[in-house]
Design a protein around this nucleic acid. Structure first.
Lengths: 121, 121
DNA sequence: TATTGACATAGACCACACTTTAAGTGCTAT
DNA sequence: ATAGCACTTAAAGTGTGGTCTATGTCAATA
């Protein structure tokens, strides 16, 4: 699969894919005889995971740490699991914060709808 | 209320408060005879709102637009409401995305716990 | 009175995550 | 065969949102 196809599949740019590879988040991707990238199924799996986690706001730094641990093999299993659990908690916290903000936003919109706005923002 | 007290109350830095004021997101805050800021109740209400929306990831640009509209008065009521509704939708979408990522993360953690990891990340 | 410490300003600097640019290579279609 | 396009690289540039530095003022305390 070419870089273009992968970029389209996951709705990201070629630039971002090359950038992720450069910083070691994915790949190194195999290249054909004229130097063109050919993404493997395994590459795609990684990209899918990375993309999903990035869209949830998990930092590149953390993801890099995770894939580096993964590439070190079996012995890092426990620490990888701990890393994921920590991120899970952070994510849950973030969702909670955002849900609270959403509730306030909804309340404010209600005030607009019922013309009950007070003198604050 | 002094900048220090406000910063503590909302868990942010003095720098950020001054920065928000500089870009017109809050204030201008009244100053006493020796140039020290004295935040009013109204200032606090704005800061609370801004802080809450920022923690949900709403951009400074959007918030600036909202407060500018607010300061233009009654006539901008409808457009402000629309702005909030648009942000509400964006926020709902973001929460959805993050919840999906959270589910995948939980699933992956389950795989770790039950030792059923396959050969991908 | 001298020093300390919180506050002030303008402007420089930073981290993060891309994104763009410059310069070049190689397949494809006219 | 030559134009055009997609690909390649390394490195510089960008946008967002703060954060830090240098320099200075002021009020209160030793």
């Amino acid at each position: 699969m070419t870089i273009k196809e992968v970029a389209e599949k996951f709705d990201m740019t070629n630039d971002t894919l090359r950038y992720y590879e450069k910083i070691g988040l994915i790949g190194p991707v195999k290249k054909n005889s004229s130097g063109i990238r050919d993404y493997s199924k395994n590459d795609l799996k990684r990209i899918e995971f990375i993309k999903c986690m990035r869209s949830a706001g998990i930092s590149i730094e953390v993801l890099k740490k995770y894939v580096d641990l993964y590439d070190k093999g079996e012995s890092t299993k426990d620490i990888r699991q701990q890393l994921l659990e920590k991120e899970k908690e952070k994510l849950e916290e973030k969702i909670k914060t955002m849900t609270e903000a959403l509730d306030k936003l909804k309340y404010k919109i209600e005030l607009y709808k019922t013309d009950k706005l007070d003198k604050y923002l």
